[in-house]
């Protein structure tokens, strides 16, 4: 495998795994939200907000994937680079933090947000606290994204 291909595996993992995490998380919240809305259709807006929270991991993953694609030259004006396999592995490693943490934190953030739907069912005025709980989980996805971005910026593609 050429280095470029290995780098693109990294992009695929970042988008794919973090996306799976978000899909599961958003799915969990959607299920409990739909249950609540059968009883009280006016809660749609509030529950949609909660459902959006675990969706960010997928975006972070896409972002990491996009950065890799841009550096490698799959998209954008620059010509596609031919990478050494060591450079390719560097890209693959850089994608790992957001891929793994995105997968797991998306699921757990979904569980917290799903529980927050129950909170909103009984006390709609406490929506904010439910959001804060969910965001405590997201912190680690943000940190993983940061690690991925710093790693990506640190890779020297010309050398």
């Amino acid at each position: 495998m050429t280095g470029t291909e290995i780098a693109l595996i990294g992009a695929a993992l970042a988008v794919g795994l973090a996306g799976i995490g978000s899909a599961i998380g958003v799915g969990i919240v959607g299920q409990s939200a739909a249950g609540l809305v059968t009883e009280d259709p006016d809660k749609f807006g509030q529950t949609l907000l909660l459902q959006a929270l675990p969706g960010t991991q997928g975006i972070y993953g896409l972002l990491a994937g996009f950065l890799i694609m841009q550096e490698v030259g799959v998209i954008g004006d620059a010509p596609m680079l031919v990478l050494e396999s060591a450079q390719g592995y560097a890209f693959l490693m850089a994608s790992i933090p957001i891929a793994i943490v995105g997968l797991v934190s998306g699921i757990y953030q979904g569980r917290v947000s799903g529980a927050a739907v129950g909170l909103v069912a009984k006390r709609p005025e406490e929506l904010g606290k439910g959001i804060v709980y969910a965001v405590m989980v997201e912190t680690y996805a943000v940190l993983a994204l940061l690690a991925t971005i710093l790693l990506l910026f640190g890779i020297d593609v010309n050398g």
Binding site: I59, Y60, L62, L63, F66, L67, T139, V142, L143, L145, L146, I149
Partner: peptide, 17 residues
């Protein structure tokens, strides 16, 4: 506080994307 950087970059990079 590194999240400030990460979120700022996220907004910018998604916009560029």
């Amino acid at each position: 506080y590194s999240r400030l950087l990460a979120l700022g970059l996220a907004t910018g990079v998604i916009a560029v994307a």
